[in-house]
Each structure stands twice: as structure tokens, then as C-alpha cells.
Nucleic acid binder design. Structure first.
Lengths: 147, 147
DNA sequence: ATAAACCTTAGATAACACTCTAAGGCAAGC
DNA sequence: GCTTGCCTTAGAGTGTTATCTAAGGTTTAT
């Protein structure tokens, strides 16, 4: 059983345009064509496509994904290179995670501030400080007048 | 004390180009100018810029960051709207985290496979299966010949 | 006063990842 | 056989974010 590009698009949540674009970018050299020249995706192809999407979802650039796919096409001899590439990408993912956690804490801090019963006073104070800092430095006040 | 655009760029790890671009996009309406028309960043400005970078780092689009900044410029009356915007963004961050964790597991699975002492055999088997699947379906073999 | 190193703007250019259009071939149902 | 709906390609167009260029004003040091 094989799948058409449209079926695959629905299956994996990408558009047919995007799949053709990926093919153009060299991400799908493993997809064969039928007698009419149509792409014929096998289950094994879907599996590899799934890996591509995993890499894409973790922010790997298309050029790097193509590098990985090139290695896959090379066969077992490229295992060390694949491992190195994925290992470097793993570091990226961990860095992303750390970055997101840090920033989440900041967003949570802001949300806590805005949810405080005295939020209005606190924000008012913040604004007053910003205004007075500008004024002390002889700078124009960029904040609109509150009526 | 105020900071020039270059000083701020070095401080926050963005280029002066990017800071000007952000200003053009309406992200820095709170930055005043000195007598020469140069941007004069205050410490309070740096604080807000830090928030902008936090939102950017968690994938918020510039248009949404501008919305948040617009609310900030409005003063305390926009607190409810700010909270709603950040709360929605918090959900995005949590979704990102979940997505990253899932995909990290997949990358780790691949890395484990490539680090296995039998990796070559396993990958060889995988390739053989892909080839036989194509052959059984009468499709051309897209894999290069292994010499 | 002149050079070097800043700053400003408008607008061009680029990189990236799509997204779509045009022109046409293939396949299934009536 | 004809319509409908797929599929193909090449290549144009879009959105977003960022980067750079050109022309010129400002500041600092010598």
C-alpha cells in the first residue's frame, strides 16, 4: 500500500505544498514515483518523514535536516556522522528547554504581578518611576497623558 | 545615566540594527531621544526591553509583543488585557515545552540506536526493509548502491 | 579643524520557510 | 468522450525577521 501526497499531508498535518517544498529541498529523496510520475509514499517513508518532522519541530534548519537525510541515504557507513549531528541537535534542544524554563518564570512573575489585588498601585508606581527617571535626565516623557 | 543604542546592543545581545528594527515595529515607544535625536535608553527602558526579549525568546510574534507594549504604554487601566495576553502566551510556552519533551525522547531513541554496538546491523536491517517494501510495490529503489 | 567613531533615516536586500499560480498530464466515474 | 479531481513541474509571490547601504548629522580626541 502506498499513499498519495494529499493522503500523507492529511496524515502528518503538513500541506501538499510543504511536502513538495521539502522534496525540492532534498528532504525526501527516499520517496519513489509510480508509473505516472506521482510520488508513492510507503509506510517506511512515513516513518522517515516522521523523523524529519521531529527535527523540524525542534527547530532544526532544513539544510541540517537535509544533511541528516543525506547520511541516512548513505546507509550504515554514516552512523557515526548521524550520531554526531543528532547529538549536537540534542544539545540545542536542551538549551531550548533551559531557555524556555527561565523565560516562563519571568512570564509567571509578570502574571503574578498583574493578578495581585494591588496590581493597579504597583503598575502605577512602576510608571511613576519610569517617568521620574526620564524627567531627572531631561528627557521627554514618552507616556501618553492619563485622563 | 543613559545608554546609546550600541551599548544597549552589547548589553542585551542584539545588534543595533535589530534594536532599530524593533523600534520601527513599535516595540520601543518608551525610549526617549536626547537633543541630537539619538535614542537615550534609561535603566527602566532596559527593564522593559528585557521583557520584550523574554517574550521574543519564547516565540511571541513581534505583532503580539507590540500589542503588549501598547498595553504597557496605556498604563494601569490595561492590566486585565495584559494579564489575558500573557496568560495565553503562557499556554503557548507550556505547549512548546510539551512538544519539545516529546521530540527530545525521539531524538534520544535515535541516539541510543546509533550508539548501540549492533548499530550497523540494526541500520542495515532498517534499510533492507525499506528496500524490500519498495520492491514488493514495484517501485524504483531510491537508495544508492552500496559498494 | 579634521579624522574617527558614533548616531540618524529611508529604503534595499537577504534568509527562511512556505504558499500559490499556471500549464499540463493522468485516472475514475458517468 | 468528457468532467472532475487528482497529480506533476517551474517559478513567482508572501510573511516574518533581520541585516545592510547610503547619505548625512553629532561627538570626541588630537
Amino acid at each position: 500500500m502506498t499513499y498519495t501526497i494529499k493522503e500523507v499531508a492529511n496524515k502528518v498535518g503538513l500541506s501538499a505544498y510543504t511536502l513538495r517544498f521539502y522534496d525540492k529541498q532534498g528532504l525526501l529523496p527516499f520517496v519513489s514515483r509510480n508509473q505516472s510520475g506521482y510520488r508513492a509514499f510507503t509506510d517506511g517513508d512515513l516513518h522517515l518523514l516522521h523523523t524529519i518532522i521531529c527535527l523540524k519541530n525542534t527547530g532544526m534548519a532544513i539544510s541540517n535536516i537535509r544533511q541528516y537525510i543525506d547520511y541516512v541515504m548513505e546507509g550504515p557507513q554514516s552512523i557515526a556522522k548521524r550520531r554526531q549531528l543528532l547529538s549536537a541537535h540534542r544539545d540545542n534542544i536542551l538549551a531550548q528547554q533551559a531557555r524556555i524554563m527561565t523565560n516562563l518564570q519571568e512570564v509567571d512573575y509578570k502574571l503574578k504581578l498583574y493578578s495581585d489585588p494591588r496590581a493597579s498601585d504597583l503598575v502605577h508606581e512602576e510608571l511613576a518611576q519610569a517617568k521620574s527617571e526620564k524627567h531627572a535626565l531631561g528627557l521627554a516623557d514618552p507616556f501618553p497623558v492619563t485622563e
